[in-house]
Every structure is written in structure tokens, then in C-alpha cells.
Nucleic acid binder design. Structure first.
Lengths: 134, 134
DNA sequence: AAAGACGGTATCTATTTGATACTGATAGCT
DNA sequence: AGCTATCAGTATCAAATAGATACCGTCTTT
């Protein structure tokens, strides 16, 4: 007996199944900004304007959308402080924090393989040029 | 002395730096289809039409774009067999395979947290409804 | 002769992302 | 009183991207 999470259909969660909610979740983690935001929030609560600087360069509209999604999915909390000028803090939930480690692995991979990937691109682009000039 | 990979600026690779190539790479891994394709290719070479079925539902245009990018970045090879009807196999490179583990972690997270996230969404949406109905 | 397999490309539309300007509440300065 | 600044966003419009759908060339099978 497997111990995988199952969804309403009774099937185990499977990212490759287009109807499995895990797929939507998986693709949302891969969102262009969401995963960066989560990583920035690692160091504790951050207010909107700070977040914008730390995740640069993201427009306020897109950052708002990203944060609303993260909040809806229970990864982030939004706290409004009754101050003037306003102060709104965003902070990771436990669920959000649980995502930090998988993300860190991916980040490490990305940062560690920059040279290999740039080299591959150069080789590919050169080959393309060759083919065209042939 | 740290052992991080550095890029041409001499700074260590850092996903949070908008000018660091690792950021582009990080965001490309998070591409809607690329990471699914890589996972499907875990079991060995797969041809185009098979891939389309396994990663459903992706249009041929988008799958082609995804595969070309993966090929350019050195994660995937494309092999044309001189047959009729044509056979084109896509296969992971060593670099591509090295991405499997970080991706598997993320996948596990996504699949394992489906219930928590769906519950958070329900709660959030209910709260929104409350606020609107006053 | 017609239809089908395969790996795409071409074309058009819908959705998403992004740039830029603006709002409302209040405090501090002149 | 009037001007400016801070902050957390919205509103509006343009640009880039993703997706739906139809089609192509080559050969084999019926």
C-alpha cells in the first residue's frame, strides 16, 4: 500500500496528470516571480516596497498578483499595520517555509550550472549560424 | 573563501540579482512545460508525439518551443532517425539528468501538499465572499 | 487513388505580463 | 494654508507569450 496523497478521484497525486490539482500547484511554484518572493521572505517579514526592491525588477501590479496568489494558497500571510504611511508586512507561513528547501535545491542547481548552460547556448547558437551560412 | 560559481562580473551567481544569468536559468526551469518535459524524459528517449501525450495537454507549437529551449540550454538532445514516417527522439543529457533530483523534490512537495493548499484556497475564497457580502 | 503516420510550421486569437500614471490618507515643512 | 513626501497599492493601455486550429511534405499501406 502506497502512502501517497490522493485527491477526490481516489488516484494518487500526480503532476503529469493534467486533471490533478498538484499539476496546477507545481506550475504555480514555477511562476516567474512567486518562487523568488518566497526565497526573499526567508529572512522574516518584509513590507511591500522592500520586497519590490529585493526581487527587482517587478512592477507593482505583478507583485500584487503574485502575493495574492501566494496568500490564497496559504504560503504567505499579509498583515496590515494601522499606521501612516501604511505598513503591510508579508511573511511566510509554515507551509511556505516548507517550500524553502526544495526551492533552495533548485536555486543551487541554477546558480551552479550557469557556466555549463551558457557554454551550451554558445555552442548551439554557433551551430545554428553554421547551418545558415553552410 | 567561498566556492560559489562566479560570472563575468566576478560576483557569485545569485538568483536574486536581476543581471545574473542564473536568474534567467532559474526562471526557465520554472517554465510551465519545461520541467514537466524533463521529468517525462527520465525514462529514456521519447519521440515527439509520445511526449505530447505524456505531457498533455500541450500544443505542438509550444512543445516545439520548449524542446528547442531545452536543447539550446544543453539539457536535452534531439536525434533524427532517417525513417519513414520520421522518428525524432528527445533524450536528457547528463546536465539534464542532474536536474531530475531537484525537480523530484519540488514535485514531491507539490503532490504532498495538495490538500493543504486546496484547504487554504477554500478558506481564502470563503473569507473573500464574507467580506463582499458584509 | 485515398488515407494515414509523423514531426512539425503558419496563422490567428486569447491570455498574461509589463510600463506608466495615478489615488487616498496623513505627516511634516514653509 | 499649501506643497511635498511616504506607502501600498489600482487603472489603463501596450507588448509579449501561450494556445487553438489548420495545414505541409514524405513516404507507406489499403
Amino acid at each position: 500500500m502506497d502512502t501517497n496523497v490522493r485527491h477526490s478521484s481516489g488516484l494518487p497525486a500526480n503532476v503529469l496528470d493534467p486533471d490533478c490539482p498538484s499539476r496546477v500547484i507545481f506550475q504555480r511554484i514555477g511562476d516567474k516571480w512567486a518562487s523568488l518572493v518566497v526565497q526573499v521572505l526567508d529572512d522574516g517579514p518584509v513590507r511591500f516596497s522592500e520586497l519590490r526592491k529585493m526581487v527587482s525588477v517587478v512592477t507593482p501590479k505583478v507583485l500584487t498578483q503574485t502575493l495574492r496568489s501566494l496568500e490564497r494558497d496559504g504560503l504567505v500571510t499579509r498583515t496590515i499595520h494601522a499606521q501612516v504611511p501604511p505598513r503591510v508586512d508579508y511573511e511566510l507561513t509554515d507551509l511556505g517555509r516548507s517550500l524553502l528547501e526544495p526551492l533552495a535545491q533548485l536555486r543551487k542547481w541554477a546558480e551552479g550550472n550557469v557556466p555549463a548552460i551558457l557554454a551550451a547556448r554558445d555552442a548551439y547558437d554557433d551551430a545554428q549560424d553554421e547551418a545558415l551560412l553552410g
